[in-house]
Design a protein around this nucleic acid. Structure first.
Lengths: 143, 143
DNA sequence: CATAAGTGTAACAAGAATAGTTACAATACT
DNA sequence: AGTATTGTAACTATTCTTGTTACACTTATG
């Protein structure tokens, strides 16, 4: 993942979690993330497809979480926004006439899966609720 | 890592390991990887800085491993070529007047470290020698 | 010594990915 | 009717990655 969508997604979801009693505007989220509201709306679209949020258009529209933050883990977020893998395989197919070229892709592909699984396992251990708690404690320390 | 440098590096090092009695030409490596020799030489430059290979210029020049493949693990390779992290943090600094914006970076940074550590641990468990063995067994199966 | 075969590296082009921006239709409340 | 908001398309700017050409420098060989 070369993009910061995961970081933005966790940020946005934490904002929604701390404002769970209202429909939060994309404009408000954009200010906190320090980006454009359209960028946020695009991200919310992915999160909606993953079933994590619902939005409403029109006057007094906005976005809410669909679940309790305790029941959203960071793997859910990762899956909602990530399209890539931890490392990329070859862009050009290696020489199939070379023994190494012929077999290296399969080896790396398995490694990729193993690494990705490790990442997922780690991510699944943290919930949005945990993130909120860390934010809160960070806040109290800095006051 | 959005680039395929790690994949290319493992490929190249495996090639060197299977030709450890000679100085391998960048041109030969480029053919197997299916890219340009300059791309390979740039990669070899990184691997040299990491102490994994030595090259010689001039007539009958080329590149060799500096160590036994048993003593090169994939974490060495990862560290030699990776500049990024598993996921990116915010590109723009979040709003410091927002409690979430103010603290989210630290939270994500810690998460990043935790994930990266998990990835490193996995990578450190595989040596270049293991990769060679997998390549060999893949080869024998396909014959 | 001249030549051939290499590496090292700079410079540039092409392409893809990412994020930012503007614009506007559709929607929903007042 | 008017206003606030999302959804989404279209375009731009920037950056990253790779590919390519070019050439100076190095080393072996005849």
């Amino acid at each position: 993942m070369a993009n910061s969508q995961f970081a933005m997604a966790v940020h946005v979801l934490t904002m929604l979690a701390t404002n769970c009693d209202e429909r939060v505007k994309s404009n408000y989220l954009a200010k906190s993330v320090n980006t454009n509201a359209v960028v946020i709306r695009r991200l919310l679209c992915d999160l909606h497809e993953a079933g994590l949020v619902v939005s409403r258009t029109g006057y007094s529209g906005g976005t809410c979480l669909t679940k309790d933050p305790k029941n959203i883990d960071l793997l859910d977020v990762y899956e909602a926004v990530s399209h890539g893998e931890v490392f990329s395989l070859h862009k050009q197919k290696p020489d199939q006439d070379c023994p190494v070229g012929k077999n290296i892709e399969a080896v790396l592909c398995n490694l990729q899966k193993e690494i990705d699984e490790a990442v997922r396992t780690k991510l699944s251990k943290h919930t949005l609720s945990d993130v909120m708690e860390l934010i809160r404690s960070g806040e109290s320390v800095s006051i």
